[in-house]
């Protein structure tokens, strides 16, 4: 009875109720049309197929999920790879593009945040480049880089660089003057000032930028892989659509959501590590 008073317990129970309700309505409202007429010859040849394609039922998706997740890493050629393998391909691209973006965005953001001159000089470029849909870069990337794999990494790079850059610059420029005065009165050299004072002071803002970036990168990789093809979770979704296997499509949509959530959780945890109370 006491456990029931806990807000978290009650919220979890409510979530469960909503889920069950939603799935029940879906399952019940999406039954195959019943027919009293005997099957036609064509239907018999097709193994009793339905006259109309339908969105799959939760039970079908659940069954597929169990099957797929029990062997997620199998590889039976280019068109038949396990969901885990596809996700790993996507994660590899995201991580590569994201880390490259961090390597560029954080030092450049530091520079912009430290120097009002650089801030003013680079601001117009950032403002114009930031709103460009990352996929708009794809043709140019394919032409210049001549490799679809590298191009998709580039698209991730270009989409995740902006939030990190802008947040780093903001965090660095907003470091309290008191902290900088502490650094000055203790004669810290620029390098020690950067690592002992500015970086820790700006870290929560920088990490927030990194969290926004990883979210955007995970959104963009699906679209990028649909364009580029070959491997990855985006390609998988599109491939299953071409196979008219909607059960797999819905299942992979769910998996995209789960992985995206895990990425966000990781960054949220990292943000908490560098958070400080004034």
């Amino acid at each position: 009875m006491d456990a029931f008073k806990n807000l978290n317990v009650r919220a979890a129970l409510l979530s469960l109720v909503i889920l069950v309700l939603f799935l029940t309505v879906w399952e019940q409202g999406n039954k195959a049309p019943q027919s009293d007429q005997p099957m036609t010859e064509y239907e018999q040849l097709m193994g009793g197929s339905e006259p109309q394609a339908r969105v799959p039922n939760p039970s079908d998706i659940g069954a597929l999920a169990v099957e797929e997740l029990s062997d997620p890493f199998y590889d039976k050629g280019p068109n038949d790879k396990g969901i885990g393998l596809q996700l790993l391909y996507s994660l590899k691209r995201v991580m590569l593009g994201y880390l490259l973006a961090a390597l560029v965005a954080i030092p450049v953001g530091f520079l912009i945040g430290m120097s009002p001159l650089m801030y003013k000089a680079l601001d117009p470029f950032i403002q114009v480049l930031k709103p460009i849909s990352p996929l708009a870069w794809m043709p140019l990337a394919l032409f210049i880089l001549k490799d679809s794999e590298i191009s998709s990494v580039f698209v991730i790079f270009i989409c995740s660089i902006w939030p990190m850059l802008v947040n780093t610059a903001f965090g660095v420029s907003a470091v309290k003057k008191d902290y900088l005065n502490v650094a000055r009165t203790h004669e810290l050299n620029p390098l020690r000032t950067a690592f002992l004072v500015v970086l820790p002071a700006a870290a929560p803002t920088i990490l927030t930028g990194m969290r926004i970036s990883i979210g955007i990168a995970w959104l963009v990789i699906v679209a990028a892989e649909m364009l580029v093809g070959g491997t990855g979770i985006g390609y998988y979704v599109w491939n299953e659509w071409n196979n008219l296997d909607l059960t797999s499509v819905v299942f992979s949509i769910l998996m995209i959501g789960v992985v995206g959530m895990l990425l966000d959780l990781m960054l949220a945890k990292a943000t908490r590590v560098v958070q400080y109370v004034e």
Binding site: D178, Y179, N181, V182, R184, T185, H186, E187, L196, V197, P200, A201, A203, V274, Y276, V277, E278
Partner: peptide, 20 residues
Amino acid sequence: AGPSLDRGVVFQNYSLLPWM
């Protein structure tokens, strides 16, 4: 001319670095 460790400063708001 400029700050130096020869002059220690205690500020009104303590100015401790909160992450340390």
